[in-house]
Design a protein around this nucleic acid. Structure first.
Lengths: 198, 198
DNA sequence: GAATTAATATGGACACTGTCAATTTAATGA
DNA sequence: TCATTAAATTGACAGTGTCCATATTAATTC
């Protein structure tokens, strides 16, 4: 790609490794993302990545950070052109998260595979918190009730996380009955919304 | 253990492999459960397990089935000595699931790691459905509303799954504020319950 | 500009994995 | 008793992440 084409030194290896890793992730899932496979795709020796990522975990963590950031941007842009109504806002946010997960299942999965990631990475946790904070801010304008905003946020955050995970893993297929995914998605958001707003 | 002690033929290998695998799972997580490690712990050659489980997936699938069954029994016994009140029943069921996940995180995790399991296994899906059906049955006696029982069940099932996953992966630690896990757990169940019963 | 240093690449090695194959041992049944 | 079958053995293979010594180039310093 945008390499210096001098033969030995690549010039842009770190970025290209990340791109190749993302491609493999999308195509074949996290299990297929191996250091050696990524190196092969970029056309470089199997030990070259070590200069840019000390271990596999570091590469995957950076990948997850990038995914969180992209998802965060998406949510922000969606919310900017959002209606004033609180429940519509919450619904939009939830739908954006679900749609992202369904559209890019392998990327979404990686976000929650903390066994593959460096949990102590500040950057990773910040990238995640940006999304969570968006959720908190949106919920903050809902009617005060016995239940705290934090609890509402965690309830919503949890339900979305669980729903998407089960959807993309095929755990809900047999339970969809006559209802389409779209309707179900709308319905469960509505259930929680009712609890949040009451 | 209960082997025939003849030296060569083990006599009870299948069961002991499962026990050893479960121990390793509990102790060190799913990544540490390797065929060779399990065989080593039982004191048998690295290829002996192949006679009882054609591949690693088969062993892990059986493990997951056993876990689902135990969890199912636990839930059933809990519900038998449950109060009549619907909301109390739902709350009990949710708490039982969450408590199980927190008490045996690695077992709980495996239940949802469909990439490690044989998704087409009838037995596995049945074992899971037993729990889901319990959920459905409990919810069925709640007040009829615009939202179907199925959607309520999936909402609850999703929220629990997401909440437990994030709790045991440490994704909620920074978001707990001053509130203890117990209180938070109660609060999010209450939020959803309010949506379900309204 | 030349020489030194630092960064980045290379291939080989190691221990580990799952799975296969050929072989050995023991139990079973005609 | 003897053939068959089930269940164990060891050895091999390709694949993995990570370390190592080495080679090449870029950057820095004199």
């Amino acid at each position: 790609m945008a390499s210096k084409a001098n033969g030995y030194h690549h010039g842009n290896l770190r970025a290209e490794l990340l791109m190749a890793a993302m491609d493999i992730l999308d195509e074949s899932g996290i299990e297929a993302v191996t250091i050696r496979q990524v190196a092969r795709r970029v056309g470089v020796g199997h030990s070259a990545p070590a200069n840019h990522f000390p271990h596999k975990q570091a590469l995957l963590t950076q990948l997850a950070i990038n995914i969180f950031n992209e998802l965060g941007s998406l949510i922000k842009s969606q919310l900017q052109s959002a209606p004033e109504d609180v429940s519509e806002k919450i619904s939009l946010l939830a739908n954006t998260l679900v749609e992202f997960g369904l559209a890019k299942p392998n990327q979404y999965r990686l976000l929650w595979r903390r066994d593959y990631l460096d949990n102590s990475s500040e950057e990773l946790n910040c990238a995640m918190d940006i999304i969570y904070d968006e959720l908190l801010a949106t919920l903050a304008s809902s009617k005060k009730s016995k239940v705290s905003v934090e609890s509402k946020a965690i309830a919503l955050w949890s339900m979305i996380q669980g729903y998407v995970t089960m959807r993309i893993d095929g755990n809900l297929e047999a339970k969809n009955d006559e209802v389409s995914g779209q309707e179900r998605q709308q319905a469960i958001i509505e259930v929680l919304l009712r609890g949040i707003l009451s």
